[in-house]
Design a protein around this nucleic acid. Structure first.
Length: 467
RNA sequence: GCUCCCAUCGUCUAGUGGCCUAGGACACCACCCUCUCAAGGUGGCGGCACGGGUUCGAAUCCCGUUGGGAGUGCCA
């Protein structure tokens, strides 16, 4: 066995992939690549109610979207915790035989009653010396020794826990199945994990797990507890309150590179004056020792800013390709879509969208039979005293003019000057007539792409609507 | 309640005793550019939680206070 580090990512299948989990996975992956180590994926499906096979594929797909490819030579797994149940139980019995664990027949209610009576919280070690054996409803508890447990954490430093603040926790449930704390440790030992990088919420579990490692006679791994991601209320991101599903960001048109880059800047920053850096740069620089100690706010606004940057940096072809998935539920009839028209419009859109999902709404007027007129936009722009004139005159000259955006613009400029108006004003009614809105891609380019006949038709249509 | 963690602009961060009258990014504001909206450019606003030490010198080290957070399951 080589001594290159073995990292692991151990999500429980919960039906969707959490951005916090994504960051933890990314930290592990960056380290794996940086150190030439191994990334082990283990699905923690110990709790049978959470065991849902189709979710495993969801995890693999999400990781792959992030660039963590399960066919990469440094990727190992997925393993399933449930398949190691025998090992977990075996270890539990060994712990019992060694005197590190004991059986207890107290129910949850009885424990609560005792706690209430004594005024102390939690389990009081009642069955420690009762010499119980296994039996229906009996749980196996770890016998926490006296003393102090010191956790050496790469992010936090040295953290000390007095053992008398750690209660005798459950290893095996009353039905004989293993608990997370045990299963997690046994699997880590089995898989030769050397470095455990996980969220800070696991820090209070760590002394318990380290005690299990010790009792099993194996040197504990290197721990690293990274700060949690929080919402604007500074609470841990939760599935109920917050937008945390990676899939949702994907479907809204966040680019994986942008997500990865942004996630990596939460709790850490690349050297230099820019946070937008290529993945390889991150791999070269990322160190656990540099990770911040405090919770980081997951700021969607900043994510969007990163995304806009990444979109603008895309090549023409890459942008076109990336847009494709977002046409499936676009507002126009699919048969009216014209890929060539879209290609002409694409460069005009690329600097104007922050997420890919905004693309369809920005070109819909090209593919819709008629532009959907926004009533507010109509009211605002058609009220001017020159609206009817500019529509009529522009329609007339457009019928015969040279067909490119420069001459179209020159035409309207001339008209505008003759009336001593501003182009910013006079283009508005035309824009609404053509696109239905007051904002959108550059007007004259859009008209050029739309074509003469359709332009004239829409202009006349607006005119007749004006009455 | 108890255990543990944390504390630099609104937010994410740089900063590891002098290079800091604290740097960058997002957001915000102004101006420039401009056919709308963006993009881009320039400039601006804004922070070391507080109080004690240690030191010639502290955002950086120590203690306390305050304020946040996580955990506290026969969940993971």
């Amino acid at each position: 066995m080589s001594d290159s580090p073995r990292y692991r990512f151990a999500p429980s299948p919960t039906g969707f992939f959490h951005v916090g989990g994504a960051r933890t996975a990314l930290y592990n992956w960056a380290l794996t690549l940086r150190t030439g180590g191994t990334f082990v994926l283990r699905i923690e499906d110990t709790d049978e109610s959470r065991n849902s096979p189709e979710w495993t594929q969801g995890i693999i797909d999400a990781l792959s979207w992030l660039g963590i490819d399960s066919s990469h030579p440094q990727f190992e797994g997925p393993y399933f915790q449930s398949q190691n149940a025998d090992l977990h139980v075996k270890a539990a019995h060994r712990l019992f035989e060694q005197g590190n664990a004991y059986w207890c027949d107290l129910t949850g209610e009885q424990i609560q009653e005792r706690a209430k009576a004594s005024g102390k919280q939690g389990y009081d070690g009642y069955s420690r010396d009762r010499g119980l054996g296994p039996g229906p409803g009996h749980v196996l508890r770890f016998r926490v020794p006296e003393g102090t447990t010191v956790v050496n954490d790469l992010v936090r430093g040295r953290v000390e826990f007095a053992n008398d603040t750690i209660e005798d926790f459950v290893l095996l449930r009353g039905n004989g199945t293993p608990m997370f704390l045990l299963a997690n440790v046994v699997d880590d030992i089995e898989m030769n994990i050397t470095t455990v990088v996980r969220a800070e919420e696991h820090l209070p579990n760590t002394p318990k797990q380290q005690l299990i490692w010790d009792a099993l006679g194996v040197t504990p791994p290197v721990w690293a507890h990274v700060p949690v991601l929080v919402n604007e209320q500074r609470k841990k991101l939760s599935k109920r309150r917050d937008k945390v599903a990676l899939e949702q960001y994907k479907s809204e048109g966040i680019l994986p590179d942008a997500m990865v880059n942004y996630l990596m800047t939460l709790g850490w920053a690349p050297a230099g004056d820019t946070e937008i850096v290529p993945w390889q740069h991150i791999v070269d620089e990322f160190k656990l020792e540099d990770v911040n100690h405090s919770p980081a706010f997951f700021d969607i606004k900043k994510l969007n800013a990163f995304n806009g940057d990444y979109i603008r940096a895309m090549s023409f072809d890459a942008f076109i390709n990336a847009c494709q998935p977002f046409f499936s539920d676009a507002p126009w009839p699919t048969q009216r879509f014209d890929a060539d028209v879209f290609k002409k419009m694409a460069p005009l859109l690329q600097t104007r969208v922050v997420t890919l999902s905004e693309v369809p709404a920005m070109v819909d007027f090209m593919f819709l039979e008629n532009a959907v007129i926004d009533e507010d936009a109509w009211a605002k722009t058609m009220a001017s005293d020159f609206a009817a004139d500019v529509l009529r005159d522009f329609a007339a000259s457009v019928e015969t003019c040279e067909w490119n955006h420069d001459s179209l613009k020159a035409l309207l400029e001339a008209w505008t000057e003759s009336r001593e108006l501003k182009l910013g004003k006079t283009q508005a009614p035309i824009r609404v007539a053509i696109t239905g809105r007051t904002v959108g891609p550059p007007l004259f380019e859009s008209i050029e792409v739309l074509g003469r006949d359709e332009t004239v038709r829409r202009l006349h249509s607006a005119l007749s609507r004006l009455g």
